[in-house]
């Protein structure tokens, strides 16, 4: 038996080598991006893979100031925070209603929300834009917050519903005996109990909103978010890769930091959302 275990250990060690190579490949882009950001445009064209021997920080300041990423940064932060909070609010309410309260038509509503999950953005581009105009939501950060909420809502509602459906019903039955109203139950029980799923959704939606390009391009035409600013660094013909790389470093840094902090919670949050008991 010990022999079996030893053999397994050896197998695992052997397997960890290709896995480490894969891990290196996953880290490489980050190294490449930072390295490229430290080169001049000419230096990059002449030597794309080599180490930046004479590092320059000019790209960072150019991206931040001249390419106005500093200005776009604020937009991205405001819009992302706003949309994520709104998403959490709306989806936890909906999940509560769909999973716990259950009413006539709740299955139909759940199906509608799931169907909308399957609609690719490209399919609804023009009509979506016209809807936004009709509601006078174009060119306002509030409009973008609402647009993000609408686009990322189906998945969030699904996850919250799945999560709440799995909580022991005794919890709410006890609350009902206490005579607590629905709003109080949501506030005092559903929100705290939903924390793992809410954290997961918070992280995922932050990622989606922060990295979104298309919706933001359409809705916030005059103010721009960070990703749009980065995309615009790609010219018609030329891409100044070092400048682009510097922009990407600046834009990805907050996300990478958030991910590192919440890594554990994402895992446990997804687990509760996705596993059927």
């Amino acid at each position: 038996m010990a022999a079996v275990e030893r053999k397994q250990k050896r197998v695992l060690w052997a397997i960890s080598i290709p896995m480490a190579i894969l891990a290196l490949s996953a880290v490489y882009p980050i190294f490449f991006t930072i390295n490229a950001a430290l080169k001049t445009r000419k230096g990059f064209v002449l030597d794309r893979f080599g180490l930046a021997t004479d590092p320059t920080f000019a790209n960072f300041s150019q991206a931040w100031n001249q390419s106005r990423l500093s200005e776009y940064f604020t937009n991205s932060v405001v819009v992302t925070i706003g949309a994520v909070l709104l998403l959490l609010l709306v989806s936890s309410l909906a999940g509560y209603a769909l999973a716990i309260l259950r009413f006539r038509g709740s299955k139909l509503i759940f199906t509608i929300i799931l169907v909308s999950l399957m609609i690719p953005v490209q399919v609804v581009l023009v009509p979506f834009y016209r809807t936004m105009i009709a509601l006078d939501l174009i060119n306002s950060r509030a409009g973008l917050i609402i647009a993000y909420t609408a686009f990322f809502l189906p998945f969030s509602v699904y996850l919250m519903t799945a999560f709440y459906a799995r909580l022991p019903r005794e919890l709410f039955e006890a609350a009902q005996i206490d005579g607590a109203g629905l709003v109080q139950v949501w506030w005092h029980i559903m929100l705290p109990m939903g924390k793992p799923a809410l954290i997961t959704l918070g992280i995922l939606n932050t990622l989606y909103c922060w990295n979104d390009l298309l919706i933001s391009l359409l809705v916030l035409q005059d103010q721009r978010t960070l990703m749009v600013g980065i995309a615009a660094l790609r010219g018609e013909y030329t891409t100044n890769v070092p400048l682009l790389a510097a922009g990407i470093c600046l834009a990805a840094a907050p996300i990478v930091i958030i991910y590192m902090i919440f890594q554990r919670q994402i895992v446990s949050g997804i687990a509760v959302g996705a596993v059927k008991g």
Binding site: G82, L86, L88, S140, A142, Q223
Partner: peptide, 17 residues
């Protein structure tokens, strides 16, 4: 705090128009 922040961001969002 979450609620306050939500209200705040929405307010900023609208002010931007």
């Amino acid at each position: 705090g979450t609620m306050l922040a939500a209200a705040f961001t929405l307010a900023i969002g609208f002010a931007g128009t």
